[in-house]
Amino acid sequence: MKESTEIVTPGTPLGYKTEFQVGEGTYIRDEFVYASLIGEKRIIKGEDGEVDNIKLPTITVIGTQLPPIIPDVGSVVIGQVSRINSKQATVNIMVVNDKPCKDNFIGVIRVQDVRATEIDKVQINKNFRPGDIIKAQVISLGDSKSYYLSTAKNELGVIMAQSIAGETMIPISWIEMQCPKTLVIENRKCAKPSFD
């Protein structure tokens, strides 16, 4: 349920902290809940039915801007491989949790994060090539330049790749893709297709 529409700006007191739970776009300081974004104030009521578990209503501010898209630990990202070497593959992150980023973020898939089995036998150039579109998961904020990504799940890996001939390849197994034109088979760490 939602109540009242009111536009608030950062620093506007919204209510006492004993009356509301803090939601998105708000914060507590001293005894008040304040807004931290410009937007519409909304109060989401808790469940009224249970006498013992009376929940305080949650107060949120729906920002006018879309919230900035930043990769976080656990996010599923889609990116393009830009560089590979024997120890890691560098990825330009383009989509975070199904939302495109405005700015590219740089991620890295290390050789030990490519798959969950036979970690010591992984070769990067048999799993990724520059230009491949991959799906990965953020496992760490990483170092100063890049996030650490992992493709060690069945749903993660290469989702689109081009063959040497320039055609989009079709995955035919967990580790192989085939060019529909020349029928050449190339090695990739393929993602399990999802049909949402």
Partner: peptide
């Protein structure tokens, strides 16, 4: 900064 959607304590 407020129009950019950056979270702030106050203007």
């Amino acid at each position: 900064l407020a129009t950019a959607g950056i979270e702030m304590l106050d203007l």
